[in-house]
């Protein structure tokens, strides 16, 4: 009885410690030329890093904060979907932030496009 109780205790302690929740973002994979000339009026978020930190760009509009990016994305039509082009400079967290902003803005079709070095 003590054996069983002790093991149950260990089990619950362990699973509580180990069971950290994870969620997900589900982008499609595009080629490095995705969102280019072959696509009609592509909506593209560029993710770069400069001296001041992570930079998100839609057309000529620049954003530093993910919330502002999400606000801007809400103004765009959802049907064409969204391309997120991530250039080599920033960390993965910036790419995830852009995709999260797209999800928050209601885009169901998000395509991740690897940016070319120096692009």
């Amino acid at each position: 009885m003590i054996d069983a109780t002790f093991l149950l205790l260990c089990y619950f302690i362990f699973t509580t410690a180990a069971g950290r929740p994870e969620d997900r973002l589900s982008p499609q994979l595009g080629g490095s030329r995705g969102g280019g000339a072959s696509d009609l009026a592509p909506q593209i978020v560029e993710v770069r890093r400069d001296a001041e930190g992570d930079l998100f760009t839609i057309g000529t509009r620049n954003f530093r904060q993910r919330d502002r990016l999400a606000e801007a994305l809400r103004e765009l039509p959802r049907e064409p979907g969204l391309f997120v082009r991530v250039h080599p400079g920033p960390p993965v967290s910036a790419a995830a932030a852009a995709m999260q902003a797209a999800a928050d803005a209601g885009f169901e079709r998000v395509t991740y496009v690897p940016g070319e070095p120096g692009g």
């Binding site: 969620d23 997900r24 973002l25």
Partner: peptide, 29 residues
């Protein structure tokens, strides 16, 4: 989250060239 996006780009490009069209990126709420 601190990994370089260049590495993620290379990974995604490889998966795409292997015929995979979409992925799930794990995040921690």
């Amino acid at each position: 989250r601190g990994a370089p996006a260049a590495a993620l780009n290379a990974l995604f490009t490889t998966l795409r060239e292997s015929g995979i069209e979409g992925v799930t990126l794990a995040v921690s709420p």
